[in-house]
Design a binder for these strands. Structure first.
Lengths: 118, 118
DNA sequence: GATAGTGGCATAGGTATATAGTACACTAAA
DNA sequence: TTTAGTGTACTATATACCTATGCCACTATC
């Protein structure tokens, strides 16, 4: 995985995991890799891996059983909630940025449709 | 100005200045505020203000006359170049993020049109 | 009980960002 | 020449992030 040096790594990995959850590549209730394995998978330090799970737990996305491992929430509602939340953030950012650059809604729609055909 | 703590301040101010340029609020060739004034305006340190102009100069957006001040480039082509560059970055990021969340082009268009009516 | 695998914690060091404060060099105008 | 305003440079400090390393506590299994 390539990292954008202007964004903390732990946030980028968190987003990557959340996307896997949203796309169904990780199922509800499923056990996540151990912190040490995650560290290897994403080429980060074990402390960073631990932080990733800790923050995801704060967001209600996973839970931890000490001595056993870390597991994804079983709540499908929570997962679709996360999806809406992430999508809204992306959309709002896009609209705000484009407005700031002088584009209006029809401009945005037009641009996206043009991109589609390419 | 409110700052997003997850993005370096100097980048956020640079973007703000570039937007003013794109929207015509700053004219080609116009003198920019002094580093000390910029620091006051944006509530940052003088060193950070100096860095902002230094980085903008690296991007060809402004130039400095020592002892006189910092001035915006007179090239209108450069300015429209910057606009295209910024817009393309925003658009590509949007499309990539939304695709990663499982949305396709028609979805995106639909969402934006919905936002417009609100 | 011993072992392996899990999360959790503590210490230390490095880098980037931002701040505070000070000082210096250049330019134009009084 | 003096002054005010400009950019530039330097040191020091603080914080966040990331890494490296080691150790401890819990759980399941042998």
């Amino acid at each position: 995985m390539d990292y954008d040096s202007s964004v903390p790594i732990y946030l980028q990995v968190m987003d990557a995991i959340k996307k896997q959850l949203i796309l169904g590549k990780i199922r509800p209730g499923e056990q996540l890799p151990s912190t040490r394995t995650l560290a290897l998978d994403y080429d980060v330090n074990t402390n960073t891996a631990a932080r990733i799970y800790k923050e995801l737990e704060l967001q209600g996305i996973c839970f931890t059983k000490r001595g056993l491992g870390t597991f994804v929430t079983e709540s499908t509602e929570k997962i679709s909630e996360i999806k809406d939340e992430m999508a809204n953030k992306v959309i709002d950012t896009f609209i705000q940025e484009m407005s700031g650059l002088g584009y209006n809604y029809p401009d945005m729609v037009k641009i996206i449709k043009e991109k589609e055909t390419k």
